[in-house]
Design a protein around this nucleic acid. Structure first.
Lengths: 124, 124
DNA sequence: TCTCTGATTTGACAGGCGTCGAGACAGGCT
DNA sequence: AGCCTGTCTCGACGCCTGTCAAATCAGAGA
């Protein structure tokens, strides 16, 4: 990237501050819904979901693009495009070290999404 | 619906049986990723996320379309389309009672998605 | 039976998205 | 400098998707 290693588009997940209330307990406000839906949308593709999983479960918590790309029957630009989508959704961070670029998961957002989907085991 | 009250398309979430392993722990297999991504995709729209939340948090665990529709600046057919998407993703169930149709959340799928996104609080 | 209301389906349109090839950029090596 | 490898950007191509208006279906009631 020619600008910064930070997320290109700052998804306003702060607008979703009250997000941690589970779906099943309180109606999600429109503004929070927009931010949260963007994150779910990023996960709503099989390739991106696998990429996210490979990055998050990688040793050291980070994965090199050079390891990610050969795991799919897709071209480099396509993988790069999906990684950018994940980055713009705030789900991962990218860092260039020498020749290679490493991606790392952002656990905070994952936690927000998980708690949003939380279902209390029993009734009410 | 003119067929059954059951989900129109049987999303193979059983292929995601091993899904409950968090993203951060094990790489999601391609087959499971396809099923799970379909569910995330359904949540990846602000309107559907709000619908899902309104249904899941409704009193009695169900919501009438007649209560859902006026909450948005959208036409009836559009809301109906989004509800169908949620239904086909296995996230909600629909039941007609007299004139009105009621939607109800399926907690099982929500739980699967939540556990997939779970992040262990500390390191390993 | 006829009509009315609620909900869905159908058909159509614009915009978004996944994919690729070609080209550009970044860094390391000789 | 020049080249090579890894990664990203750009432009283009279909397909998918969100939206609406119009038509249709499902029940309830007169």
């Amino acid at each position: 990237m020619s600008k910064q290693p930070a997320p290109l588009v700052a998804i306003d997940l702060n607008a979703a501050t009250s997000c941690c209330a589970p779906l099943t307990q309180r109606r999600v406000p429109a503004q929070a819904a927009a931010a949260l839906a963007a994150a779910f949308k990023a996960l709503g593709d099989p390739v991106r979901l696998q990429l996210m999983s490979m990055i998050a479960s990688a040793e050291g918590g980070e994965a090199c693009v050079c390891d990610l790309t050969p795991a799919f029957d897709l071209t480099g630009p396509t993988i790069s495009h999906h990684l950018r989508t994940l980055r713009e959704a705030g789900l991962v961070d990218a860092e260039r070290r020498g020749t290679w670029v490493y991606y790392r998961a952002r656990p905070g957002v994952l936690r927000q999404l998980a708690s949003l989907l939380a279902v209390e085991p029993a009734g009410s």
